[in-house]
């Protein structure tokens, strides 16, 4: 798959993934990036995550608080709000509905056609 398409796919689901990761445990930006990289999104950069975090916060889906750190400046920790939890539930249901349609189609396409 071309890298650009892959990147667009990731951008489409990234808000959902961020909400899911933050639902599991509140994190600061860089920690969140590392967690998602450890989960398999190895090419994910901080530059991709921060604009989405900013958008989610502006939309009221996540809230933040500053926590002092022993190494370096205070970290801005994020966690989902009630609205964000609801958004995540809606997006998750929609994702499952979409994959339920897409996966059988892809499985059919992957099988060789009988002549």
């Amino acid at each position: 798959m071309p890298e650009n398409n892959e990147s667009q796919l990731l951008k489409g689901v990234l808000p959902m993934l961020l909400l899911a990761a933050l639902s599991e445990e509140e994190s600061y930006g860089y920690e969140l990036v590392v967690r998602l990289q450890d989960a398999g999104l190895t090419d994910l950069g901080a530059g991709t995550v921060y604009p989405v975090l900013s958008r989610l916060e502006r939309d009221g889906d996540i809230s933040s608080r500053l926590v002092p750190s022993r190494s370096g400046p205070a970290r801005k920790y994020y966690r989902p709000t009630g609205s964000g939890t609801q958004t995540l539930a809606t997006a998750t249901a929609a994702w499952h509905a979409l994959t339920a349609i897409v996966e059988p189609l892809l499985a059919t396409a992957a099988q060789p056609q009988e002549m």
Partner: peptide, 16 residues
């Protein structure tokens, strides 16, 4: 063109 957590929802609805 804005990515949002509900993009998947819109996509699924369009499929249906």
């Amino acid at each position: 063109a804005r990515p949002s957590a509900s993009n998947a929802s819109v996509s699924a609805k369009r499929h249906r």
